[in-house]
Design a protein around this nucleic acid. Structure first.
Lengths: 174, 174
DNA sequence: GTTTAATTAATACAAGTGTATTGTTAAAAA
DNA sequence: TTTTTAACAATACACTTGTATTAATTAAAC
C-alpha cells in the first residue's frame, strides 16, 4: 500500500507474511502467480460483498444504489482493494495475453442493474438500455478512480451524492 | 508501450533514444526526472490539442463534443498518450507527496464546458452544475480507461456514441 | 514407529537496477 | 587562440531482483 508496485517484491511479500523466501515459494512458484492470486482474491471479495447486498432484498432503487456504493471506495477496506486492483491492472495490462487476469465483472453487474430497473419499469422509458449501461459503467469506474487519486476533492459524501444524482436522473419521478 | 513500466529502465530509455547512459544522464540526472518530464510532456500535448480545438470556433455543442473527443483515446496517438499517463500515474501514485506530478487539467476543463453550456442556456435548467461536472468528468475518464483496457468491446464508434448520448441528454431538445 | 510427504529455511546465482565517476570530444566564449 | 563549458561515452559500484537448489524440519500415513 505504501511502497507501490516496486515494493511488491517476492522478498517484501514474504517478510510481510512472516514467511521465508523458500516457504512463500512453496505456495507460489513465481511472482506472477502471486499477482494473479491477489487479483483474484480482490475480485472474489468484492463479488461476495455485492452478492450479500443483493440478498438483503432492499427496495429496487435502494438496492441498486447499495450495489453501486459497494463498487466504489467509500471506506478504507474498499479503498485498499481498489488501490491493489488499480496498481495490478496497470502493472500487467501490457501482457494481457500471457497472464490470466481475472475480469472484475463490473460490466456485467452494471448491465444487470440497468436491465432490472427497466424490467420493473423504474427506468425512464425513453432511454437506451445499452448506452445507459455504458454510461453507468463509465461513471462508476471513473468516480472510483477519481476518489482513489483525489480523495481530498472527492470525499465519500460527494461520491454518494453523484451516484445518487445519476440514478435519480435515469429513473422516473426524479 | 510493450514492455510496461518494468521496461522503462534508464538503460532501455537511453537505447530507445539512441543515447548512451551517460548522455541521457546529462539531461536527466535521475529516473524520476525522466518520468516527471514524460508526464508533463503528455499533458502539454493534450492541452495543446484541446486548445486548438477550442480555437476552431465550432458551434457550441459541436465544440463541446470535439473537446471531449480529444480527451479520450480515439486514435493510436491519443491511445499511446493515455497508456503512458495511466501507467505513470499508477506507478507514482503512492508517493504523490515527494514527486511533482502534473495535473492533467481535465477536471477544470470539464468544469468550463459545463458552465459554458449553462451560460448559453444550452444546459437543461433543472440540472445541478457541480454534480453535472462531476458526472461528465467521471464519465469521460471512465470511458477513457475502458477504451484503453478493453478496446475490442469499446471501440471508437461506441465511445463517440456514448459521449454524444450523454451530452444530448443534458442539453435542451434532445 | 518408521517412512513418506509436506513445509520451511538458508544460500546461491545470474541478471538487471539506479546512479556515480572519470574521461573524451565538440562547441562556445574569452 | 586559448579556455571554459556543454555534450557524450565507458566503465564501475553497490545493491536488488526473481528464481533455483539444497538441506532441515515438521506433520501425516501406513
Amino acid at each position: 500500500m505504501d511502497k507501490g508496485m516496486e515494493g511488491a517484491t517476492v522478498r517484501n511479500i514474504a517478510e510481510e507474511a512472516g514467511l521465508s523466501l523458500g516457504a512463500l515459494r512453496h505456495y507460489f512458484s513465481t511472482q506472477d502467480d502471486l499477482l494473479v492470486y491477489a487479483m483474484t482474491l480482490v475480485t472474489e471479495r468484492a463479488t461476495d460483498r455485492i452478492e450479500a447486498v443483493v440478498k438483503r432484498n432492499l427496495p429496487p432503487k435502494e438496492m441498486v444504489l447499495a450495489v453501486l456504493y459497494e463498487i466504489v471506495p467509500l471506506n478504507e477496506e474498499k479503498r485498499a482493494e481498489m488501490q491493489v486492483w488499480f496498481a495490478f491492472v496497470a502493472h500487467v495490462s501490457h501482457r494481457k495475453n500471457e497472464l490470466p487476469i481475472p475480469d472484475d465483472g463490473i460490466w456485467k453487474g452494471v448491465q444487470k442493474l440497468i436491465y432490472y430497473l427497466n424490467q420493473i419499469s423504474l427506468l425512464k422509458p425513453e432511454l437506451d438500455l445499452e448506452l445507459e449501461t455504458e454510461r453507468l459503467y463509465s461513471l462508476i469506474d471513473g468516480i472510483a478512480i477519481h476518489a482513489l487519486l483525489e480523495p481530498e476533492r472527492l470525499d465519500a459524501e460527494r461520491v454518494r451524492k453523484t451516484i445518487h444524482y445519476h440514478i435519480d436522473l435515469i429513473c422516473i419521478q426524479a
